[in-house]
Write a protein that binds this DNA or RNA. Structure first.
Lengths: 237, 237
DNA sequence: ATAATAGTGTCTTTCAGACATTATCTA
DNA sequence: TAGATAATGTCTGAAAGACACTATTAT
């Protein structure tokens, strides 16, 4: 038998295969807090519980796993988040009552403001403060997944400015520092924080200032590639 | 309908699901080189090409994805590698001619010596120098996966001593440094390399020495948790 | 003694921590 | 002018880079 013959006689459905889903831990920064997007399950199993946005791969709509996660996130937020990165794949016999299952999980970040109106229009989606995730009963192993995503995000906050994707296009340095502080749960040295970002030239001065109370702060914008920059030395935990 | 009723009437096979496989990039250090374990495919598709060790999840044998990868690696090497970590999940419509597929990939490390005899007994498995991977025509997207695993391993070599898992239980510091140098493709400062390992107390002096030519080198053993230690500062790339 | 490899001493450089000081706004 | 917040100056400390030097073996 040659490969052509093999492929034309091959039937994927003849084998037991795990369920495959894609889930996203979408973080944002709002009202001084780190928040996670959760969706109330409207179908069995685990109906009524809060869960991560996600769902099954569509063999017709999706060419890749990224397509799946982006499609799912756009359904809930109305936009494509500027930062989407694969987190980890959780798989096992017992994590879903329907049978052996695999979920490919992503971490995503977005500015609260750009999806606020759309999320309010989606009845089942809500931003939940990260601090309160422990108080909810989440579906499947989604609480574990959120904790895992958070741990990874803490590391990123120590050696990159990836958390900037949780802010609007223009933001101030004190704002960005506060996002980092909220993520890692500890205050940072203002000087150290600014110095490393300046030296690596990761932000562009927009020329604008934002004034609330006190001295107005400079508004910056990320450079195109500054999300992928990693400092050689971590901030202290 | 309640959840019980839902579950008893649920049929996984009623839905189109991607193929799910698990693959491993198993590295070792031998003859001064970094090598990768490859397996010659004996079945369609891509029959005859070199591929990563791996295969389908077994719903009966495996309780988790780690079970699958460990089972597959033990089949080829005869032992369970001391370091197995999830790398990335590659998925898409076109990566496997059988249809939409997902492969959950792992990076693993092992000492050459502990599996040498078993691999020689497995007709289809071979250690390939990492440098020569580009010259082979690999199955599926396995070359891309190996490059990805290597990039991740380079990072680990800069901020951890994870590469030590590619060595036997007892090894010398110059040996370990050379593994790091071969991985990152660049010489390192002897003093810097030793200093950080000593300060973090990651290795235990076995009291033994190894003598080849020149001054005998101290033989060390890893501490139980030293694989998970990360230095706060990277070595220079 | 020489060659070879292991291991140390020590000065320089880099960059984060600490924290005082100055700058710029509003009320 | 006082209060608030933004931004800087500058000293200290920790850890890596560079590279010369010493130590221990075999021949």
């Amino acid at each position: 038998m040659n490969e052509q013959e093999f492929l034309s006689s091959y039937d994927k459905r003849a084998f037991d295969a795990p369920l495959v889903t894609v889930d996203a831990v979408l973080f944002t920064y709002h009202e001084g807090q780190l928040k996670v997007l959760l969706v109330k399950r409207s179908a069995h199993p685990e109906m009524g519980k809060w869960a991560l946005p996600g769902g099954f791969v569509s063999e017709t709509e999706d060419r890749s796993l990224e397509d799946t996660v982006v499609r799912k996130l756009r359904e809930k937020t109305g936009v494509i988040p500027p930062y989407v990165e694969q987190l980890y794949t959780f798989g096992g016999r017992d994590r879903d009552k329907r049978g052996w299952s695999v979920t490919v999980c992503y971490t995503a970040l977005i500015a609260h403001q750009v999806c606020e109106s759309h999320i309010e229009s989606v009845a089942d989606a809500r931003w939940i403060p990260f601090d309160r995730v422990g108080k909810l009963e989440l579906a499947f192993d989604h609480e574990e997944i959120i904790r895992f995503a958070h741990e990874r995000l803490v590391q990123k906050a120590l050696y990159s400015i990836v958390p900037a994707y949780a802010l609007p296009e223009k933001f101030t340095l004190p704002e960005l520092q506060h996002v980092h502080e909220v993520i890692i749960g500890k205050p940072l040295q203002k000087k150290s924080f600014r110095r490393r970002i300046e030296q690596a030239e990761l932000l562009v001065d927009t020329g604008e200032k934002r004034s609330e109370t006190g001295r107005p702060a400079t508004l910056y914008r990320m450079r195109d590639d500054s999300g992928s920059h990693t400092f050689v030395r971590n901030l202290e935990l």
